[in-house]
Structure formats: structure tokens, C-alpha cells
């Protein structure tokens, strides 16, 4: 639930900064038109206020963006690959405590020989989802993908 609240906060701040950004441009535009009508004071005030507003909005948006990237990095999951040397049966699942590379985890369901963990790595979100091992992260409990060439 904490993550949910963080996300709402994130959107509120983003929306607010966008509002300020748009409003600053509006002020700038207004002061320019009023200058054309001969009101010099409005121009000065308008420019100063608009520059402050745009600056603030930009700085908050860039920090938000940085944070979004960081959150995305942190949400990456560690995967473990179960692999059978004999029949190339492969299963990608979430890392569990106690897993390690080369750990023997029982019999292969396809050919009954030794099954072991072949690799453990951080999931790669950039990778296109065209590969046969489709990884769905929305349902962590059912994150098992089986590929068997035999």
C-alpha cells in the first residue's frame, strides 16, 4: 500500500508542476500583450514571475523524472533460470532465498535427469518481449515460463 501512496503523491506533484509551468507561460504571454498595450510595469513583473515559475516547475519535474528512473531500477526483479543439461528444459522464475547458481534442485520433469539452477540475474526490462520466455511481472506467483526443445 505504501508504494500505492507514493505513486499518488508522485502524480499529484507532477500535475502541480505542470500546472505551474502552464500558468507561468500564461503570465508571460499576458504581460507581453499588456506591454504592447503600453503597460511596462506589467511586463517586468510578468517576466520575473514567469521565469521563477518556469524554473521551479522545471527543477521539480527533473527531480521527479530522476526519481521515476530510480524507482523503475529498484522494481527490477532478480530471476533464477532452472536448466536441464540433457534436454535443454528451461524454466525462468523469481529468485527465492537459498537459491544459488549450480544448486541442484531435483529431477527434470521432462527427462528425469538432474535439474539445476543455471543462472541468476537481474531482469532486463529493455529486452523486447518477443523471446519465447515471456516474463510477466504482474503476477509474481505465477511467474514460470517453460521452454523445452525436446
Amino acid at each position: 500500500m505504501d508504494r500505492e501512496r507514493g505513486r499518488t503523491y508522485f502524480y499529484i506533484v507532477a500535475l502541480f508542476s505542470m500546472g505551474i509551468l502552464i500558468y507561468s507561460f500564461y503570465i508571460l504571454y499576458n504581460s507581453l500583450t499588456s506591454y504592447q498595450e503600453g503597460q511596462t510595469e506589467n511586463l517586468y513583473i510578468g517576466i520575473v514571475v514567469a521565469i521563477i515559475g518556469i524554473g521551479l516547475a522545471f527543477s521539480s519535474l527533473t527531480t521527479l523524472r530522476k526519481r521515476a528512473i530510480m524507482l523503475k531500477e529498484m522494481e527490477k526483479k532478480v530471476l533464477a533460470v532452472e536448466f536441464c543439461d540433457k534436454c535443454s528444459f528451461k524454466k525462468v522464475r523469481l529468485f527465492e532465498k537459498g537459491d544459488y547458481v549450480n544448486k541442484k534442485i531435483g529431477k527434470c520433469t521432462q527427462c528425469n535427469s538432474e535439474l539445476s539452477i543455471n543462472a541468476i540475474y537481474l531482469e532486463d526490462k529493455k529486452e523486447p518481449d518477443k523471446s519465447p520466455q515471456r516474463v510477466s511481472t504482474s503476477q509474481p506467483s505465477s511467474l514460470t515460463i517453460t521452454v523445452c526443445s525436446a
Binding site: L32, Y35, Q36, T40, E41, L43, Y44, I45, I47
Partner: peptide, 27 residues
Amino acid sequence: MSLNTVLQLGLLGGLGGEDSSIGTVIS
């Protein structure tokens, strides 16, 4: 129009010419 005028005003506006009190304050 405006970019040029704004630039000119930004550079020269406060320094003279205008009688407005805010211009004086800013300069």
C-alpha cells in the same frame, strides 16, 4: 515581434528611459 523587444527591454529597460517606479526599483 516579442523576443527581440523582450531582449532589448531586459537589457536596457531598467537603465533609463522609462519613468516607471518599478523600473527604477529593478535597476
